[in-house]
Design a protein around this nucleic acid. Structure first.
Length: 275
DNA sequence: TCCTTATGTACAA
DNA sequence: TGTACCTAAGGAC
């Protein structure tokens, strides 16, 4: 399941598997993308791009102005699965399958899978905030919005217009790592705090792309370093607070708290993240 | 077999 | 603020 690191990793994986390898079979077994798939069938993938949680696959003409882009957003449920040829018969939930003589990849359950032109793609970039995983990102643009806002920093970090790619896990974890109460207003975040949060997100999310999971626990707080038994978090990575409600904080021992905020679950340690 | 939950977003009221 | 949408896994029966 996807935060920005997943999407950037997928862009790398799609490009590594298919870019420059010649024409692909493009199909939509489920049927909801059939017309566009028919248009793209037997054409090459030449590039893949990611901004926040949005993925773009560039087909047909390599000149960006004339590229046909498949815009994908996984939403909460979307999944992508790569495999080696020969591809098995697709199940009826496969929205998009790309295949050549060595690889296939299936997309299921995306909230968005649509053909867009370059102008439409640019419009999507324009409504997204800076992405810690993109080299062109300007963290000052995010801080301008945060420093003027009465909204909580927890909500601002999830607002893709403010900063693109951060989801519920990175939000909870980066606020913990900086000892910041999630309910503090954006305008109370200092320039120094924002600089540190941004730098940390760049580091954490790059590591997330590399390992394809979210790990946020510093070496000094691993179970081995703390002299505790190994632990297993139920979402594939080692974290401080995400989905650890009512369990003891790895650092101070207080109970991790949880609360609903804008239809999502927020997690924080009241001991380490004081108001 | 049914119910709940999930790393997300858009839109209506 | 509530609801709709998309899928699959895990747990309660």
């Amino acid at each position: 399941m996807p935060e920005g690191h997943t999407i950037h990793r997928l862009a790398e994986d799609y490009a590594a598997a298919f870019a420059g390898r010649g024409p692909l079979r493009v199909t939509s077994p489920q049927g909801k993308f059939s017309d566009a798939a028919a248009l793209l069938d037997h054409s090459p993938l030449h590039t893949a791009d990611a901004h926040g949680k949005h993925l773009f696959l560039g087909f047909r003409d390599p000149d960006p102005e004339h590229t046909d882009w498949v815009h994908i957003h996984l939403g909460l449920f979307g999944k992508v699965a790569f495999g080696s040829a020969p591809a098995p018969p697709p199940t009826d939930t496969v929205r998009l399958r790309l295949a050549d003589d060595r690889t296939f990849v299936d997309l299921r359950g995306p909230t968005t899978c649509a053909l867009v032109n370059d102008a439409e793609k640019r419009a999507i970039h324009d409504r997204l905030g800076p992405d810690p995983l993109r080299p062109d990102a300007d963290p000052a643009a995010a801080y301008r919005r945060i420093s003027r806002s009465r909204t909580t920093i927890a909500a601002l970090l999830m607002d893709q217009k403010v900063i693109a790619g951060v989801g519920n896990v990175y939000r909870a974890e980066v606020l913990f790592r900086h000892g910041i109460d999630p309910y503090r207003a954006g305008r109370d975040i200092t320039p120094g705090e924002w600089e540190a949060i941004w730098a940390d997100l760049v580091m954490l999310m790059r590591e997330g792309v590399r390992t394809n999971r979210i790990d946020t626990v510093r070496p000094e707080h691993t179970p081995e370093a703390m002299g505790r038994p190994p632990r297993v978090d139920d979402h594939g990575g080692e974290v401080y607070v995400y989905r650890r409600a009512a369990r003891p904080c790895h650092v101070c021992g207080e109970e991790i708290r949880t609360a609903g905020l804008a239809a999502r679950n927020l997690f924080w340690c009241p001991g380490c993240q004081r108001a």
